[in-house]
């Protein structure tokens, strides 16, 4: 018998910082209708678009191993912005799931 809870397979996507912008728009965060940030736009020419693996609709669970669960929108956006800005890494690791 199957599990009553649908199992979503998470995918680790590495986005190399090869453009001046990350180039994604996100919505959602704790205490909103969309409790985890969801990608709503991917801009051509940005690092995310160049990577080719992030998709509109992906829900972001973690950024560089930092969980976004329970974080409000601004906090999640800040974590992603800082991951792009830091010179300590030449890429960002996104753990994402496809929407149901």
């Amino acid at each position: 018998t199957g599990s009553p809870v649908p199992v979503l397979s998470a995918t680790l996507v590495q986005v190399v910082k090869n453009a001046n912008t990350l180039g994604i728009a996100i919505e959602g965060g704790a205490n909103t209708r969309q409790p985890l940030p969801r990608i709503v736009t991917i801009q051509k020419g940005g690092s995310a678009h160049n990577c080719g693996q992030l998709k509109v609709g992906h829900i972001i669970l973690e950024v560089n191993g930092i969980s976004l669960r329970g974080r409000e929108h601004k906090d999640a956006a800040r974590i992603i912005a800082e991951a792009f800005k830091t010179k300590e890494k030449d890429h960002i690791d996104f753990l994402v799931v496809e929407p149901r």
Partner: peptide, 15 residues
Amino acid sequence: REKRLTLPPSEITLL
């Protein structure tokens, strides 16, 4: 605290 049936929509941030 009042329990809301619908949560508010989120703002959108471009990164």
